[in-house]
Amino acid sequence: MASLLEVENIEKSFGGLKALDGIDLSVEENSITSVIGPNGSGKTTLLNCINGIYVPEKGHVTYRGRSILGKKPHEVARMGIGRTFQVARVFKKIPVVDNILAPVLSSHRPMTDLRREAVELLKRVGMEKFTDGIGGDLSGGQQKLLELLRAWIADFDLILLDEPFAGVHPELKALFFEEIRELQRLGKTFVLISHDMHSVYTLSDTIVVFDLGKVIARGQQEEIQNNERVIEAYLGN
């Protein structure tokens, strides 16, 4: 399989603190790669470096063989990389439908089609009654689901999920699983950050473990579970 995203030896520091210290990551097309690690190990910083919120001081990021280093967030998004946030970033004062339309405003498809599709997506996840409400009306879990609907409508090929299951009701979580699986069936690729080990083990093709801005292990479930450095990082020393 071809690799969709290549992260090579990137470094990013804040003041004296090295948040990312020589990270390598290769994400294969149509896979789900999970990034786990203790709080502050640099997981979210990695996502921010991929979608252009931060520019790493060193290293390369390539997507489909093209460098995306230094590209602005909106340019990265238009290349097909979508993103959800640890705390959902829903536009609180804006109608729910328009919230879903946000990533396709630059597309050339007619607005009426897009609106219809947005409403259909809301129906899919049983949220059609919120169509005319505003983003702020939704619960935390629903806001996270809305972020995923954006990825649907925008047809992002690579979707970066930052803690999608944290604080989400178990029923909604099951729905999330279904949606992610369905998107994967459609050929989408995921990078997943999560503390929810059960979800990580069920969904992931590859798991990468971060600690203090470095990759300390990578592989499948068994390899990770039995890795001494991982146990050390989590349990402390």
């Binding site: 979608n51 919120i53 602005k72 967030p73 909106h74 998004a77 238009r78 979508g82 993103r83 946030f85 970033r89 536009f91 609180k92 004062k93 804006i94 328009d98 919230n99 339309l101 946000a102 990533p103 396709v104 405003l105 630059s106 983003g135 954006r150 925008a154």
Partner: peptide, 19 residues
């Protein structure tokens, strides 16, 4: 719509492909 999104959350709007 893009302008309203930007007003609400500039960084999130950018991540969604809004220039």
């Amino acid at each position: 719509i893009a302008l309203r999104c930007i007003r609400d959350d500039e960084a999130a709007a950018a991540v969604m492909g809004i220039n």
